[in-house]
Amino acid sequence: MKRENVFLNLDLSDLSAQPGALHIDNKIILIDNLDDVADEENANSLSFANYPMKLSFTIGLIVLSGGMKVKINLEDFEARAGDAIVVFKGNIGEFCSLLPDTRMVVIAFSDELFNVVKHINTALSIQQYIYTNPVFHLDEEFLDEALDIYKKMKAKMTETNNIFLEGILHGYAQVLMYSAYNYFVQRKKNTDNSLECNRNQEIYKLFMQSVQKNYMHERSITYYAGVLCISPKYLSQVIKNVTGRLASEWIADYVILEAKALLKSNKYTVQQVCDMLNFANQSFFGKYFKRKTGVSPKAYIKS
């Protein structure tokens, strides 16, 4: 059965159309409500994804006051003053509610610009850390640094006659991303002193790429080990060592996320979702879904 798109895509062009948004060729977008009156209407003006949307870019939000509830990949999170939220391209985000006094800044990067930091030795480990911890508290020093860079970028955006504007903004963006990566390295060192990029990191990267491509029809660790030309036991050990989670858990994350989206779309029956995700029968799908979520597919639809 051919699957229709469940989520609408949120593109940089959609974001740049938001009130007060500043951008440079839809590669860097800045939005904030720092100068607005603190009320519910102005807080909600930044709520640009009021239903689940798949991002075609990487976005970072810093909450300066108030707070909000969001869903990232259909999981609930709450952010308060001093917290940051990072959502990578391809993930699913949704604003659920914002407090009336919420003040925040938003920075979105195109994939082209975000890729400048992917060569960093620790990039994979940092991205995996952020993927599992998309909402986190910033210490005062880094919060001030990030906000200072944001304000400088915002000020430069108004210099329309500056022939080097794009290069300057790209430079500021790189400073911000490198500073952020350094912050995460130091943060992660508190819990894990091993951030070396090695063969295990490469296996993890290739495994995740393969899962993202094939999870709709393959859930077997043996399959993914075969793609990488290694044994299932070795793949399991590597993924556990790199991420602290089982390979099967990463596969299940994608399967369950897709299943939840399909079920909540109200477009398909449980049997149709079962077929789309290549389960042998509805009974097996129901048991798999309940084991991972604690509820049956039908109960999830009603929740």
Rank of each mutant, 00 (worst) to 15 (best):
L46C: 01
L113P: 05
S248M: 10
Y204D: 11
D83H: 05
M104T: 05
Y268V: 07
E159K: 15
Q174A: 01
R199A: 15
L235V: 07
V135A: 03
E145A: 02
I149W: 02
V87I: 14
L246P: 04
D76K: 15
M153Q: 07
K188W: 02
E159Q: 15
M53F: 03
E140G: 05
Y204R: 13
Y204S: 10
A299N: 09
N193H: 13
V37N: 08
R80C: 03
M1G: 12
R219M: 12
N198Y: 05
K290R: 01
T293N: 02
Y131I: 10
N241P: 01
S236F: 03
E78C: 02
K156D: 13
Y234V: 10
D275T: 15
M68L: 15
V242W: 00
A17T: 08
L124Q: 09
L277Q: 04
A155I: 08
T243D: 01
A261H: 10
L61M: 08
S45K: 15
M216D: 11
N115W: 08
K69P: 01
D111E: 11
T160M: 12
F289A: 02
N161D: 15
A299Y: 00
S236N: 04
R199Y: 15
F109V: 00
E140P: 13
Q186M: 10
N5I: 08
R103A: 07
T191M: 10
V238N: 06
L8F: 09
L61P: 04
D14I: 01
F284W: 04
F142V: 11
V227N: 11
N9G: 08
K152A: 07
K298G: 06
F289S: 03
F142L: 05
A84Y: 00
Y178T: 09
W250M: 11
L263N: 01
W250Q: 12
Q186F: 09
K154V: 03
D35R: 13
Y129R: 05
S45R: 15
N193F: 15
L206A: 14
S296V: 01
K71P: 02
F164A: 09
Y215C: 05
T269Y: 10
N133M: 13
K152P: 04
H170I: 00
F207L: 13
M104H: 09
H119R: 12
L99E: 15
E40V: 02
D39S: 10
M157I: 06
L30S: 08
G82F: 00
L277R: 03
N33Q: 05
L34V: 07
I168K: 02
Q212T: 11
K2V: 14
S194R: 10
F114T: 04
H170R: 06
L277I: 09
F136H: 07
H119F: 12
K302L: 09
V117W: 00
Y215P: 00
S296D: 00
V117M: 06
I130S: 04
K188G: 03
F164C: 08
L228F: 06
T132A: 14
E112N: 03
R103D: 02
E258A: 12
E196Q: 12
F77E: 07
K213N: 06
I29G: 06
